[in-house]
Amino acid sequence: MTVSDVTASGTANRGGAQLPVVVRAENVSKRFVIRKEKSLKERIVNFGRSQKHKDDFWALRDVNFEITAGTTLGLVGANGSGKSTLLKVLGGIIEPNDGFVERRGRLAALLELGAGFHPDLTGRENVYLNSSILGLSRKQTDEYFQSIVDFSEIEAFIDTQVKFYSSGMYVRLAFAIAVHVDPDILLVDEVLAVGDEPFQEKCMAKIKEFQQEGRTIILVSHSASQVEDLCDRVLVLSHGNVVFDGGATDGIAALRESFDR
């Protein structure tokens, strides 16, 4: 699936069925300015030389693409190539300097190690809080609660404060919540390699189930095998530019090539 297949009406042709475009990025550019000083003192001391203490670079440069419903897209690239920035722009967390991202449908992000968890609250309280952060109503959470706990397999500790959880338990609960949000678009940033092996397999099975249900998954990963296994389209980024857009196998080859440059 390449951009050229997309028709003007915002749908694309795949296997005879018309699939709607769910994410559209146009000329997305993001420039980062890195200031080395943070405090007032440092700013005053370095006043005038301030320009020298600024460093800027383009984390993303004129990125264009469209994603149709049901696609699993892998974002790959070397460290610092802009994949996580792109994911954040897609999620609306960072605003691009130029261009825009349009999307439709419910979006959920798999939070890295349960970023929305409060260590002093119990697992149960955190489930409600995190579900709400990801956009579930209280009633929906009540409905899914048992299913979330079952999926995470930590029922015995659900009323314990999460600061006493092991990191594995933490991630199990976070993953269990994220997959119950019923997203149309799921953003995943390097978090699938967590938990013990049976749980990882469970996660993969869930992701596959999501694919069959026609959900769109956008995945940032360094694992070539995982990308080849899951994705049906790959974007390779290098220094903020999209250098390849196409199938997974070719994408991995292009990725290896981009390392050499």
Binding site: G10, R24, A69, L90, V101
Partner: peptide
């Protein structure tokens, strides 16, 4: 899901 999504309008995801 695809049919439902096709009906939805696009939202510009700006954080600002």
């Amino acid at each position: 899901r695809a049919e439902r999504l096709a009906e939805l309008p696009f939202e510009v995801s700006v954080s600002a």
